[in-house]
Design a protein around this nucleic acid. Structure first.
Lengths: 202, 202
DNA sequence: TCGGATGCAGTGCAGTCGTATTGCAAAAGC
DNA sequence: GCTTTTGCAATACGACTGCACTGCATCCGA
């Protein structure tokens, strides 16, 4: 074994560069040479770690998934043990929304990948599975009958808020207000266990 | 004036071909030659009617906007005079959701353009204006205080349902159920004037 | 009848794309 | 010390891109 390098580290280095390019110029600007330049490495090296561009894209997509998953688990962990369902959901969703500049970049990439997978059904399967798990998890936290429909609606609301945030249609404050309003409806209408907390710091 | 041709007709012919290509292979597959082939015309002709590719893209985007606007006005007109707010909103939103195969294609193109404009802020301005008008209109139909937040939430829900429909995460039935569930919350919780109709045909 | 404008096809060009291939330096095993 | 394997750089190639340009047919106005 020659030269001791960590292949995974190299691959994530390249994937990070890819995401930087995609966030600023869109996925269609992602080429081997652009990514290599953004990563400060040679095009040959990119090719060395990803034999094909599709392989590189798939890896970058998995990085996006992992990153947002980590965001969620971090936010949940910060709430301590046995948080109220409403606070848990709010923290989860807020963690996934592109509210600050950093997560806006991630959101742009995610949106680009969304359009990307819409034309490549084979890459959409894992995303579907992720969403299925999310729906089930959220449904378990919601009160009342029709928890499935409510969970689907809540996650759709999150997705839509994200899109509108990226499009500049809503400010972070507006998005959070819409989210809290929706949580009000869900938890108050059905007499759920989670009242709205007196203060909702951002 | 030689040869009597309607330039607008030609341009929409080309734009339709563009949308066909974009719906099936994504926006990044849209090139002068591909669009020309899909339209059954020469590449030179495309170039004749759109001096630059950006011009063609901008026109296609405007066609997408016009088409969805027409979908809404059609759906509203079909409801007759003075429909109940809830029915009006449901019809509007259902008209904008990619529920059948035909509107799924349009939705795919719209999603692609969403990611497209996310990187080209100058093209996003008109979309922002459209959404602003929609929010105001919807807010006027909603009961209770916080109508603005409720309207933003409802439109975000619509957007998210559309994305999830395109991603294959939800079936049309699930999306409509989530929509009706949300409308239940909005109109029942605040004692609004619109009860849920006994039957909700699709 | 005859210019001239217009609609459109075709070609050429410089550039970028993904990928295959080659070359070479460095480190590990013999 | 020599071979082999690995990490990486560089180049070559064919396909494709957007765009400029040329050529030609058609039709209108004078």
């Amino acid at each position: 074994m020659p030269k001791k390098v960590d292949p995974r580290q190299r691959r994530t280095l390249i994937a990070d560069a890819l995401m930087r390019v995609a966030a600023q110029q869109g996925l269609e600007a992602v080429s081997l040479r652009h990514v290599a330049a953004a990563a400060g490495v040679s095009a040959g090296m990119v090719q060395h770690y990803f034999r094909t561009k599709d392989e590189m894209m798939a890896f970058a997509l998995s990085v996006v998934r992992d990153r947002s998953q980590a965001r969620v688990t971090d936010a949940v962990a910060a709430l301590g043990d046995r948080p109220a369902p409403r606070q848990l959901l709010r923290a989860m969703i807020a963690a996934l929304l592109p509210l600050d500049e950093q997560s806006r970049d991630d959101g742009r990439v995610a949106l680009a990948f969304l359009a990307y997978t819409a034309v490549r059904p084979e890459a959409a399967a894992t995303l579907r599975k992720d969403n299925r798990q999310l729906v089930d998890f959220v449904a378990g936290l919601l009160p009342g009958p029709d928890a499935d429909a409510a969970a689907a609606g809540l996650l759709a609301l999150m997705e839509g808020l994200g899109v509108h945030l990226l499009g500049g249609n809503y400010t972070p404050q507006q998005a959070l207000r819409a989210l809290d309003h929706h949580l009000d409806l869900i938890f108050e209408a059905t007499g759920g266990a989670g009242e709205r907390p007196p203060v909702t710091p951002t």
